Each structure stands twice: as structure tokens, then as C-alpha cells.
Simulated scan of single mutants.
Amino acid sequence: MRPLDHGSDTMSPATPLVFVSLIVCRRTILGFWAGHRNSKIRVILARVWENDTELDIKNNRINRATGHLVYQKKFYRVKFCICPGGSQVNSARITDSIHYGCVPGKTSTSLSSCLGASLAVILSNYYDLPFNDILDWRKFSVILKEHDVYQLKYILKDIPDGEFVALHNNLVEVQKHFQWNTPPIRYDAFHMVMYDLWLRHRVIKY
């Protein structure tokens, strides 16, 4: 298996201007997080930003049973999905932000299906990100240290629209690597896991 493409650094010249405009302008919320305060960084995040009018910060995770796709639809209205470290090894929000990048039930990367992607903001001093040996996460997400939480809103607002769209386009490109298919499809999550294990078997001694 050959190494997988890490994504482009810049927005494709073929990207329609109307697509760029819709990606940016339809997002009325700068950042979103909802969850329990089960770690120091989450406590600080909620304390500093829960009353901010440009960030949607909630103390409790939205119950997915409260309404049809209430939680999922949040990802279609925000620019950034904030993923602070919690009490567990990783955060489901990281894969949520990738999984809900397209309208549920769609697999096409067409204009209508991919406007929903929100970029993950990894807010942790250390995350062993999925497929970190294969994918360059800095090309399709924003990675910050925990001390950046105090300047979070200003850091996100300083990201130019062109850079956001480039990250967004790269996110759309890597979505296929996080999808589980039956039977497996080339470069999907199954193949990524197998490739990752193959890479690690050369450095891990049993």
C-alpha cells in the first residue's frame, strides 16, 4: 500500500467562488462545544467563554434524542468544532466534526453535501490523534495548546477566510479515511487501520 495523500496546502484553483462564499458566510457561529466539565481544560473553557456571544459553549453535552439531528446540525452552522481534552483518552468530537462534514446519508463531495464541514480545533497539550503517522492533521484542523484557551476566540477570528477554506477543502478530502464501509473500500477506515498497524510493526517490539 502506498502512503496516502496528506492533502493540499492551498485552496484548489478550480474551487468555485460561490462555493467559497457559501462555506464561509453560512456559518453564523464561530465555535461550538457542548460537554461535561470533566477535565481542567474543559472547566477553564466553559468558565472563560460560556457567556460569549460569538462562541456556543454549553456545560452539558446535547442529548441526541432531544430532536431530529439537533446535535449534528450544529456542525453545519459553525466554523470550528472545539475539541478540548477530557477524562478519556480521546474526544468523540474530533470524529464527529469529520463524520458530520457532509449531510448524513450523502457520500458525494458535491457542493450540496459538503458545505456542512466544521473544522476541529484540538485544544490539548497532547493528543495521539487517529492515523497521526499517516495524515498531517495541521492541514485539515487547528491544533492549539491548552494555554491558548484564554485567547481562543481571537485566534480563531484571526484565521483568514482563504486559510479556513483551504483547511475545509482538505478536511473534505480526508473524510473517506474515517468512514467504515462493508465491504471495505480502498483508503477507508479499515485500510487506514491496517496501514497504520503495518507501519507500527516495524518499530514496536513484542
Rank of each mutant, 00 (worst) to 15 (best):
Gly162Cys: 11
Glu146Ala: 03
Asp96Cys: 05
Val89Met: 00
Leu69His: 15
Lys74Gln: 11
Leu123Val: 10
Lys106Glu: 13
Gln72Ala: 14
Leu45Phe: 03
Glu50Ala: 08
Ile155Thr: 03
Ile41Gly: 01
Lys73Cys: 01
Ser91Asn: 10
Met192Phe: 06
Pro3Lys: 02
Asp188Lys: 08
Thr95Cys: 00
Gly105Cys: 05
Arg47Met: 03
Leu17Tyr: 11
Ile23Trp: 03
Arg186Gln: 08
Glu54Tyr: 10
Ile82Ser: 01
Pro3Asn: 04
Ile62Met: 06
His168Arg: 11
Arg26Glu: 05
Pro130Met: 02
His201Leu: 13
Asp9Arg: 04
Arg37Cys: 07
Ile82Pro: 00
Asp56Cys: 12
Ser87Phe: 09
Leu45Ile: 09
Phe190Lys: 04
Arg186Lys: 08
Met194Lys: 13
Pro160Gln: 09
Ala14Leu: 15
Ile29Val: 15
Asn181Asp: 14
Leu17Ile: 07
Phe164Asp: 05
Pro13Ala: 01
Ala34His: 10
Asp158Ala: 14
Arg61Ala: 12
His68Trp: 15
Lys40Ser: 03
Tyr206Arg: 13
Phe75Cys: 02
Val18Leu: 15
Thr53Lys: 10
Asp136Val: 05
Glu173Trp: 07
Trp33Gln: 02
Asp133Ser: 05
Glu54Met: 10
Ile143Val: 14
His99Lys: 02
His99Glu: 06
Met194Glu: 15
Gln151Asp: 15
Met11Ser: 11
Trp180Lys: 10
Val89Asn: 06
Thr182Ser: 13
Thr28Trp: 09
Arg61Ile: 12
Gln179Arg: 08
Thr10Phe: 11
Phe140Tyr: 13
Leu129Met: 13
Ile155Phe: 01
Tyr127Leu: 09
Arg202Trp: 08
His191Trp: 15
Arg64Gly: 00
Tyr126Ser: 09
Ala120Val: 05
Asp52Gln: 00
Gly86Ala: 08
Cys114Gln: 02
Thr66Gln: 14
Ser124Met: 04
Ser108Leu: 06
Thr15His: 07
Asn59Val: 14
Ala189Pro: 10
Asp133Trp: 03
Asn63Pro: 04
Cys102Ala: 11
Ser110Asp: 13
Leu69Phe: 15
Ser141Ile: 00
Arg26Ile: 01
Leu17Cys: 12
Leu197Val: 08
His68Val: 01
Tyr150Ala: 04
Asn51Cys: 06
Thr10Trp: 10
Ser118Met: 04
Cys114Val: 04
Gly116Ser: 14
Asn63Lys: 10
Arg200Thr: 02
Leu123Tyr: 12
Tyr71Trp: 10
His68Glu: 09
Ser108Asp: 15
Cys25Val: 03
Leu45Val: 09
Ile159Val: 06
Asn132Lys: 13
Leu144His: 07
Leu55Trp: 09
His6Gly: 14
Phe178Trp: 14
Glu146Gln: 07
Gln175Tyr: 08
Ile29Cys: 07
Asn169His: 07
Lys176Gly: 14
Asn169Phe: 02
Ile94Val: 09
Leu4Asn: 09
Thr10Gln: 06
Leu167Val: 04
Ser108Gln: 10
Phe80Val: 05
Leu119Gly: 00
Val78Phe: 11
Phe190Pro: 01
Ser91Lys: 07
Trp49Thr: 07
Ser87His: 09
Tyr195Leu: 08
Phe140Ala: 11
Pro130Arg: 02
Asn181Cys: 11
Lys139Ser: 00
